[in-house]
């Protein structure tokens, strides 16, 4: 454009929202099994014909698209941990939030969880509250 207005007073900014109200996501079979398992105090993964175990479970095995079998997983450990002190917009959080990934030996994948207390990466963890999302602490 060979000419442009630069004075902010001459320019208009229109406030608006994307027309999205709310979503209700179906967890799918594997997701339901996983979340129901959490409520019963159990971790479920899926074992595929290849012998590989995936967590969280999925409705199909990624390597061959067949259905696997649910298996219970035990003894989670904290693999990765971060402490978040600001929100996405740079506002300081009232209290830092610890978030991590717990994993299981011999299972591929992990679960994003909130962490309480002084659990460190590599520590075995126990679930403090069997609710989704999970809160864990040092075992």
């Amino acid at each position: 454009m060979w000419s442009k207005k630069g004075r902010i007073e001459d320019l208009i900014f229109w406030k608006g929202n994307m027309e999205v109200e709310a979503y209700e996501y179906d967890e799918g079979n594997a997701g339901k099994k996983f979340i129901e398992g959490i409520k019963e105090g159990k971790f479920y993964g899926i074992k595929c014909s290849s012998g590989k175990v995936y967590v969280p479970p999925r409705d199909y095995c990624p390597e061959d698209m067949t259905e696997g079998n649910y298996v219970e997983l035990t003894e989670p450990y904290l693999d990765l941990l971060t402490e978040v002190r600001e929100d996405s917009y740079g506002n300081k959080l009232e209290k830092p939030i610890k978030v991590g990934i717990i994993r299981f030996l011999n299972a591929k994948g992990g679960i994003i969880v909130r962490v309480e207390g002084d659990a460190k990466e590599g520590d075995k963890v126990k679930v403090i509250k069997w609710e989704w999302p999970l809160v864990v602490g040092k075992a």
């Binding site: 442009k4 320019l11 208009i12 229109w14």
Partner: peptide, 20 residues
């Protein structure tokens, strides 16, 4: 079901033509 309400707010720059 997992319910989620997205927050999608914008301040659309009208730009040169639409501002005038």
């Amino acid at each position: 079901m997992i319910r989620y309400v997205p927050k999608a707010k914008y301040s659309y720059s009208a730009g040169q033509a639409q501002s005038v």
